[in-house]
Design a protein around this nucleic acid. Structure first.
Length: 168
DNA sequence: TCAGTGATTAGG
DNA sequence: CTAATCACTGAG
């Protein structure tokens, strides 16, 4: 097991996202112990031109972290109830992120954050340096399927139809 | 199918 | 300040 490095994240989101399913998310849990969970489903959000990407509305306090170099966490609250876990990718000033939609035993982006205790305090956390959350390469190879992203009807047909959801 | 729930954002 | 929006979930 080896922690993923800055170089892994500092690539285009369409190169990083398909490689995430099968990797292990390691996190310090609420009881103080560490848990390791295989990532099962993710979605790529790519740059200011992607109408489904929050950064398409420009640089705001919320989306600020997406404009940083890859490896940081982009966390936000949706529908007043669920924290969404995203991993920033790409070079500085090229806003991209990967939404973690599901991990082993916890299918669903809102379910996994609630179960693991992930909230706004993780905003900006650096996966390369952090002592409480990071990703590891298990060394195993997986077959990854792809399909359209979910829950982005507002983005229009073109962006809605991009096959940027990747899952085991 | 549909309500819950509140941070975030644009606009006055 | 106001009001609309929302990368979801679980109940019926």
């Amino acid at each position: 097991m080896e922690r993923l490095t800055r170089d892994f994240y500092t690539r285009d989101v369409l190169d990083v996202a398909p490689e995430l399913p099968g990797k292990s998310l390691v996190i310090k849990l609420m009881d103080g112990s560490y848990g390791s969970f295989r990532v099962t489903e993710v979605e790529a959000y790519r740059g200011e031109e992607d109408k489904a990407c929050h950064a398409s509305k420009g640089r705001t306090a919320r989306t600020e972290i997406m404009f940083h170099q890859g490896g940081r966490l982009y966390i936000y609250l949706i529908y007043g109830m669920y924290w969404m876990l995203n991993i920033v990718t790409g070079e500085k000033d090229d806003p991209q992120a990967v939404l973690i939609r599901g991990i082993e035993n916890y299918p669903g982006p809102g379910i996994l954050t609630k179960s693991l205790g992930i909230d706004k305090s993780f905003y900006g956390e650096d996966l390369v340096m952090s002592g409480r959350i990071w990703l590891e390469d298990t060394g195993s190879v997986h077959t990854v399927k792809s399909g359209p992203r979910i829950g982005i009807d507002y983005a229009g047909e073109y962006w809605k139809s991009r096959p940027w959801r990747y899952y085991l």
